[in-house]
Simulated scan of single mutants.
Amino acid sequence: MPDIPPHHTSPPSSPCSISFGSTCLRATLYILIIGAVMQGVLWEAGLPDRFRFSEIGFTESMQSLCLLISCLLLIHARQVLKGLPHVTLLMLGLFGAALIREQDFFLDAYVFDGAWQTLVTLLVLPILYWIIRHRHEFVREFEGFSESFAFGLFASGFLCVFVFSRLYGRGEMWEALLVERYVRVFKDAAEEVTELFGYLLLTYAMVELVLWIRRRNTKP
Protein backbone atom coordinates (compact mmCIF):
# COMPACT_ATOMS: atom_id res chain seq x y z
CA MET A 1 0.00 0.00 0.00
CA PRO A 2 1.51 3.38 -0.98
CA ASP A 3 2.46 5.73 1.78
CA ILE A 4 -0.04 8.51 2.26
CA PRO A 5 1.69 11.84 2.80
CA PRO A 6 0.74 13.48 6.04
CA HIS A 7 -1.87 16.16 5.84
CA HIS A 8 -0.31 19.48 6.77
CA THR A 9 -2.51 22.13 8.29
CA SER A 10 -1.69 25.65 9.30
CA PRO A 11 -1.16 26.04 13.01
CA PRO A 12 -4.05 27.71 14.79
CA SER A 13 -3.57 31.41 15.22
CA SER A 14 -2.90 32.75 18.67
CA PRO A 15 -5.78 34.55 20.36
CA CYS A 16 -3.45 37.56 20.61
CA SER A 17 -2.50 37.52 16.90
CA ILE A 18 -3.77 40.06 14.37
CA SER A 19 -5.82 38.87 11.43
CA PHE A 20 -4.62 39.67 7.91
CA GLY A 21 -7.72 41.74 7.12
CA SER A 22 -7.38 43.77 10.31
CA THR A 23 -3.70 44.35 9.60
CA CYS A 24 -4.43 45.66 6.10
CA LEU A 25 -7.20 47.93 7.38
CA ARG A 26 -5.11 49.46 10.13
CA ALA A 27 -2.09 49.85 7.84
CA THR A 28 -4.26 51.71 5.34
CA LEU A 29 -5.60 54.02 8.04
CA TYR A 30 -2.11 54.70 9.37
CA ILE A 31 -0.85 55.56 5.87
CA LEU A 32 -3.80 57.88 5.22
CA ILE A 33 -3.20 59.69 8.51
CA ILE A 34 0.49 60.16 7.68
CA GLY A 35 -0.49 61.51 4.26
CA ALA A 36 -2.97 63.96 5.80
CA VAL A 37 -0.44 65.13 8.38
CA MET A 38 2.19 65.72 5.71
CA GLN A 39 -0.29 67.80 3.73
CA GLY A 40 -0.65 69.91 6.86
CA VAL A 41 3.12 70.27 7.03
CA LEU A 42 3.16 71.36 3.38
CA TRP A 43 0.50 73.96 4.16
CA GLU A 44 2.54 75.23 7.12
CA ALA A 45 5.64 75.54 4.92
CA GLY A 46 3.82 78.19 2.88
CA LEU A 47 3.02 80.40 5.88
CA PRO A 48 4.97 83.56 6.80
CA ASP A 49 8.31 82.99 8.51
CA ARG A 50 7.08 83.85 12.01
CA PHE A 51 4.52 81.01 11.87
CA ARG A 52 6.46 78.27 10.07
CA PHE A 53 7.49 75.45 12.42
CA SER A 54 7.00 77.70 15.42
CA GLU A 55 5.51 76.91 18.84
CA ILE A 56 2.04 77.79 17.53
CA GLY A 57 2.47 76.12 14.14
CA PHE A 58 0.76 73.04 12.76
CA THR A 59 3.69 70.67 13.29
CA GLU A 60 4.24 71.55 16.96
CA SER A 61 0.50 71.40 17.63
CA MET A 62 0.25 67.95 16.03
CA GLN A 63 3.12 66.76 18.22
CA SER A 64 1.21 67.82 21.33
CA LEU A 65 -1.97 66.22 20.01
CA CYS A 66 -0.18 62.90 19.39
CA LEU A 67 1.22 62.94 22.92
CA LEU A 68 -2.18 63.80 24.43
CA ILE A 69 -3.88 60.95 22.54
CA SER A 70 -1.11 58.57 23.62
CA CYS A 71 -1.58 59.56 27.27
CA LEU A 72 -5.35 59.05 27.06
CA LEU A 73 -4.88 55.63 25.46
CA LEU A 74 -2.45 54.63 28.21
CA ILE A 75 -4.88 55.73 30.91
CA HIS A 76 -7.58 53.67 29.21
CA ALA A 77 -5.29 50.64 28.99
CA ARG A 78 -4.28 50.91 32.64
CA GLN A 79 -7.47 52.03 34.37
CA VAL A 80 -10.19 50.50 32.21
CA LEU A 81 -8.59 47.42 30.62
CA LYS A 82 -6.36 46.75 33.66
CA GLY A 83 -3.47 45.70 31.42
CA LEU A 84 0.27 45.97 32.13
CA PRO A 85 -0.16 48.38 35.07
CA HIS A 86 3.57 48.93 35.61
CA VAL A 87 4.62 49.18 31.96
CA THR A 88 1.77 51.55 31.11
CA LEU A 89 2.55 53.69 34.16
CA LEU A 90 6.18 54.12 33.08
CA MET A 91 5.14 54.96 29.51
CA LEU A 92 2.55 57.39 30.85
CA GLY A 93 5.35 59.14 32.72
CA LEU A 94 7.43 59.28 29.53
CA PHE A 95 4.61 60.64 27.35
CA GLY A 96 3.40 62.99 30.07
CA ALA A 97 6.88 64.43 30.49
CA ALA A 98 7.24 64.86 26.72
CA LEU A 99 3.83 66.58 26.55
CA ILE A 100 4.83 69.01 29.30
CA ARG A 101 8.16 69.61 27.58
CA GLU A 102 6.38 70.51 24.35
CA GLN A 103 4.58 73.32 26.23
CA ASP A 104 7.81 74.83 27.55
CA PHE A 105 7.36 78.10 25.64
CA PHE A 106 3.91 78.76 27.09
CA LEU A 107 4.77 77.54 30.60
CA ASP A 108 7.90 79.71 30.78
CA ALA A 109 6.04 82.72 29.35
CA TYR A 110 2.76 82.52 31.28
CA VAL A 111 3.56 80.54 34.46
CA PHE A 112 7.21 81.02 35.45
CA ASP A 113 10.62 80.38 33.97
CA GLY A 114 11.50 76.72 34.50
CA ALA A 115 7.89 75.68 35.10
CA TRP A 116 8.10 72.73 32.74
CA GLN A 117 11.14 71.30 34.52
CA THR A 118 9.31 71.49 37.85
CA LEU A 119 6.20 69.79 36.46
CA VAL A 120 8.22 67.04 34.79
CA THR A 121 10.10 66.37 38.02
CA LEU A 122 6.87 66.18 40.04
CA LEU A 123 5.46 63.72 37.49
CA VAL A 124 8.46 61.50 36.83
CA LEU A 125 10.06 61.03 40.25
CA PRO A 126 7.06 59.33 41.94
CA ILE A 127 6.59 57.08 38.90
CA LEU A 128 10.24 56.04 38.85
CA TYR A 129 10.08 55.34 42.60
CA TRP A 130 7.04 53.11 42.09
CA ILE A 131 8.58 51.25 39.16
CA ILE A 132 11.87 50.63 41.02
CA ARG A 133 9.94 49.41 44.06
CA HIS A 134 7.95 46.99 41.87
CA ARG A 135 10.74 46.24 39.40
CA HIS A 136 10.13 42.47 39.35
CA GLU A 137 6.49 42.90 38.31
CA PHE A 138 7.60 45.46 35.74
CA VAL A 139 10.15 43.07 34.20
CA ARG A 140 7.56 40.27 33.93
CA GLU A 141 5.10 42.60 32.20
CA PHE A 142 7.78 43.99 29.89
CA GLU A 143 8.86 40.53 28.76
CA GLY A 144 5.34 39.86 27.50
CA PHE A 145 4.94 43.31 25.98
CA SER A 146 8.28 43.05 24.13
CA GLU A 147 6.89 40.24 21.97
CA SER A 148 4.00 42.33 20.64
CA PHE A 149 3.66 44.41 17.47
CA ALA A 150 2.95 47.41 19.71
CA PHE A 151 6.43 47.18 21.21
CA GLY A 152 8.03 47.21 17.76
CA LEU A 153 6.20 50.41 16.88
CA PHE A 154 7.03 51.89 20.27
CA ALA A 155 10.75 51.17 19.88
CA SER A 156 10.75 52.65 16.36
CA GLY A 157 8.95 55.80 17.47
CA PHE A 158 11.16 56.22 20.54
CA LEU A 159 14.36 55.99 18.48
CA CYS A 160 12.95 58.35 15.86
CA VAL A 161 11.93 61.04 18.39
CA PHE A 162 14.65 60.88 21.00
CA VAL A 163 17.65 59.85 18.90
CA PHE A 164 17.32 60.31 15.13
CA SER A 165 15.43 63.62 15.07
CA ARG A 166 17.95 65.18 17.47
CA LEU A 167 20.89 64.08 15.33
CA TYR A 168 19.20 64.87 12.02
CA GLY A 169 18.19 68.34 13.20
CA ARG A 170 21.62 69.48 14.32
CA GLY A 171 22.33 73.02 13.16
CA GLU A 172 25.96 72.33 12.30
CA MET A 173 24.97 69.59 9.86
CA TRP A 174 22.55 71.87 7.99
CA GLU A 175 25.07 74.72 8.02
CA ALA A 176 27.66 72.41 6.48
CA LEU A 177 25.15 71.16 3.92
CA LEU A 178 23.69 74.51 2.83
CA VAL A 179 26.74 76.72 3.51
CA GLU A 180 25.88 80.34 2.57
CA ARG A 181 22.30 79.38 1.73
CA TYR A 182 21.66 78.22 5.29
CA VAL A 183 18.43 79.48 6.84
CA ARG A 184 17.34 78.26 10.27
CA VAL A 185 13.92 77.19 9.01
CA PHE A 186 15.57 74.29 7.13
CA LYS A 187 17.03 72.96 10.36
CA ASP A 188 13.75 73.51 12.24
CA ALA A 189 11.68 71.78 9.56
CA ALA A 190 14.01 68.77 9.41
CA GLU A 191 13.97 68.27 13.18
CA GLU A 192 10.31 69.01 13.86
CA VAL A 193 8.86 66.98 10.96
CA THR A 194 11.04 63.98 11.82
CA GLU A 195 9.98 64.32 15.45
CA LEU A 196 6.34 64.50 14.40
CA PHE A 197 6.67 61.26 12.44
CA GLY A 198 8.15 59.61 15.52
CA TYR A 199 5.24 60.81 17.64
CA LEU A 200 2.83 59.37 15.08
CA LEU A 201 4.58 56.01 15.39
CA LEU A 202 4.30 56.22 19.18
CA THR A 203 0.59 57.00 18.91
CA TYR A 204 0.09 54.02 16.61
CA ALA A 205 1.98 51.94 19.17
CA MET A 206 -0.46 52.98 21.89
CA VAL A 207 -3.41 52.11 19.65
CA GLU A 208 -1.90 48.69 19.04
CA LEU A 209 -1.17 48.31 22.75
CA VAL A 210 -4.82 48.91 23.65
CA LEU A 211 -5.98 46.43 21.00
CA TRP A 212 -3.39 43.88 22.14
CA ILE A 213 -4.52 44.14 25.77
CA ARG A 214 -8.13 43.76 24.70
CA ARG A 215 -7.25 40.59 22.76
CA ARG A 216 -5.38 39.24 25.79
CA ASN A 217 -8.34 39.98 28.05
CA THR A 218 -10.70 38.01 25.78
CA LYS A 219 -8.30 35.06 25.39
CA PRO A 220 -9.97 31.87 26.69
Rank of each mutant, 00 (worst) to 15 (best):
C66S: 13
C66A: 13
C66L: 10
L67P: 02
L67Y: 01
I69S: 09
S70H: 05
L73D: 04
H76Q: 10
H76A: 10
A77L: 13
R78E: 08
V80K: 14
V80F: 11
V80R: 14
L81C: 11
K82C: 12
K82H: 15
G83K: 06
G83S: 11
P85T: 07
T88N: 12
T88Y: 06
L90A: 15
L90T: 10
M91E: 07
L92F: 14
L92N: 09
G93K: 08
F95K: 02
F95D: 01
F95Y: 14
F95E: 05
G96V: 07
A97C: 14
A98C: 05
L99Y: 08
I100Y: 00
R101T: 00
R101S: 00
Q103S: 00
Q103G: 00
L107C: 04
D108E: 01
A109T: 12
Y110G: 00
V111A: 11
F112W: 08
D113W: 03
A115C: 10
W116R: 01
V120I: 15
V120M: 14
V120L: 04
L122W: 10
V124C: 15
P126G: 10
P126M: 10
I127A: 09
I127C: 09
L128W: 13
R133Q: 13
R135Y: 15
F138K: 08
R140E: 15
R140Q: 15
R140F: 10
E141H: 07
G144S: 12
F145P: 09
S146A: 14
E147C: 12
S148L: 09
S148A: 09
F149T: 13
A150N: 10
G152T: 11
F154N: 04
L159E: 01
C160L: 13
C160K: 01
V163L: 14
S165H: 02
R166F: 01
R166P: 04
L167Q: 09
G169D: 03
G169R: 01
R170C: 01
W174N: 02
A176D: 14
L177P: 02
L178K: 12
R181D: 15
R181N: 14
V183P: 02
K187C: 03
K187P: 02
K187W: 04
K187S: 03
D188G: 03
D188M: 06
D188H: 07
A190R: 03
A190Q: 05
E192D: 12
V193Q: 05
V193E: 08
V193H: 04
V193S: 13
T194S: 13
L196C: 08
F197P: 03
G198L: 02
Y199K: 01
Y199E: 07
L200Q: 12
L202H: 02
